[in-house]
Structures are given as structure tokens and as C-alpha cells.
Design a protein around this nucleic acid. Sequence first.
DNA 1: AACGGAGCCAACCGCGAAGTC
DNA 2: TGACTTCGCGGTTGGCTCCGT
Length: 286
Amino acid sequence: MGRPRCCDKANVKRGPWTPEEDAKILAYVASHGIGNWTLVPQKAGLNRCGKSCRLRWTNYLRPDLKHDNFTPEEEECILELHKTIGSRWSLIARRLPGRTDNDVKNYWNTKLKKKLAKMGIDPVTHKPFSQLFNEYGKISGAGNINSFQLHNSTPTNLTNPYPYPYPFQVVNHEITYFAEASSSSDTFLGQIAPYSNNYFHGDPYFASMKTNEIQESEYGEAFSLNYASEEETLEHSISHDHMNSAAKCTSGVASNSAHSFVDSILAHDTEMRLQFPPALNENYDY
DNA sequence: AACGGAGCCAACCGCGAAGTC
DNA sequence: TGACTTCGCGGTTGGCTCCGT
């Protein structure tokens, strides 16, 4: 039944690749091309798992890869596509010639996510934090920040169905945001605090809120923001202008047949926008 | 100079889809 | 058709480097 197993995981080398191993892969691909990766270790004389060989090739050895820094244009493209389709790194990478999904993912996790957070924009929904305040108030029925569910716990032990917790704390008339940007070792809980009034004040959503209501709420308490679903927030985060720029990005940087999925998403969003223009006409510039 | 924390990124893990027998 | 595999993907980790104290 089925095929023979790829490799014996216990007896293959793992960890960083040596120049000699790289040379073997390059030589093998140069003479045989890319085919069945499970056969590559055996034929190339490598004590590695085929999966590991494929990863090394696609993420590092491929001759068409760029190894220099991301350009501002590439950065903007990633932002626009992430806003539209979320963390579909392989789809985003296909729009960026010479970049791998791993490149894009790493760049997002180490640079862009933090950059957005520092600008006061939620990296998941691409909305300003202040708007999240406002919208949550509406969702929960009362229409202002007083309706937020209050937690007497610290930010680290909040329970929240949404992938990222949104604990805010108001201390001394300043809003402090405790962001858990990643569940990996790079988690920066509290790093971007204080997300104080500096940028909230310049934010149209914050300006439209009744700030005295914030002050009347229980200072020192932590707020958590619950969203119905990631899909819902993603849909709501797409703005018309970003659709246009995302379309520019996707048509201008690269094109191949694999883009049809992204294109279908963009088309679907355009259709939604026509049906519900008031709900989707918000725009945020990075 | 030594240490610790943060940043970075290559590599691994686990899962679902697709392919093979 | 079912059992089993490979492939491709997104999420996560480990270790190296840099930087501040």
C-alpha cells in the first residue's frame, strides 16, 4: 500500500546546512532538475530528510531568490495583501518575485507587525486601535467604551476567543495597550506601551469618541476586546482605496496563474463593497 | 569585559490536501 | 475505495548576533 516512507527521521541530519551540503543540492538540481524530493537525499548523497532538502532549496538555494532587504514597494505590497487575504504567506510571496513565503512571514513577524502596532494600527485587522474601542462598544450594544467588558485580571491571563488579546489599560488618563503580538519567543507583551494619547488624539475615531466617558470608566481596570471571528474583522478591514492599491500591487509586481485565487478574493470583496458601501469605505494610510 | 534581553531568521513541526498504489 | 505517502503551507522554535547596561 502506498509509497515507501520518505526517510527515517531518527537517522537523518538536522539543523544548519553546511556549504558542502548546499553544493550537493545545487549540483543535483542542476543535473536532474526538481522532481521527487524524497529521492534527492539518496541521489545527491545527503543524510537529510527530503522535506528538509526541499525547504533548503525553496527558501535559500533557489537561484532566483533575492537576499537583500525588502524595498518600500515590497513592504507596501505585503501590507495591502495581508489586509486583504490575511496571513496567506505563500500567496503574498507569489506576488513578490524572488521572495519566499518564509521571507515574507519573517519580515511580517519581525518588522511590519511591530511597525503597525507602533503606528497605533492593529496588525490583525489593520484598523486603528481607537476604532476597535469604538466598534466594540457598538457591538456590545451601548455604543461607547463603558460597555467594554471589564476584567480584574492582568493582561497575561485574559481569556479571549479572538486570536490576539486586546487588553487596554487606562492609567493616569493615558491609554496603555498591552499587545501580545506573537505567541512565539518574540512576544512583546507590553513592549509597545504606553500607547498613550499621542496618536489616539490624532485619530479621527478617537476624536469622535466621548473621551470623558473613558475617564469616567474605571481607571486601572483592563479592558479586553472580543471579536466575533477573524473573518469578520478581516472583511470589515478592507477599504476601497486599499482594494485599489492591492490590485495595483498584485498586477504590477508579478503575475501568474496562481494569482487567480487572490484575484477571486479581490473580486468578491469588490462585490461586497458595492452592496455595503457605507460599512467598507474607511481608509487608513500607513 | 561580561552579561542579559531583544531582534532576527533559518529550520523544524504538524496539519490538510493531493497523489499513489 | 481505503490506506498510505508526499507536498505545500502556516505556525513555531532555537540559536546566533547585536546592543545596552
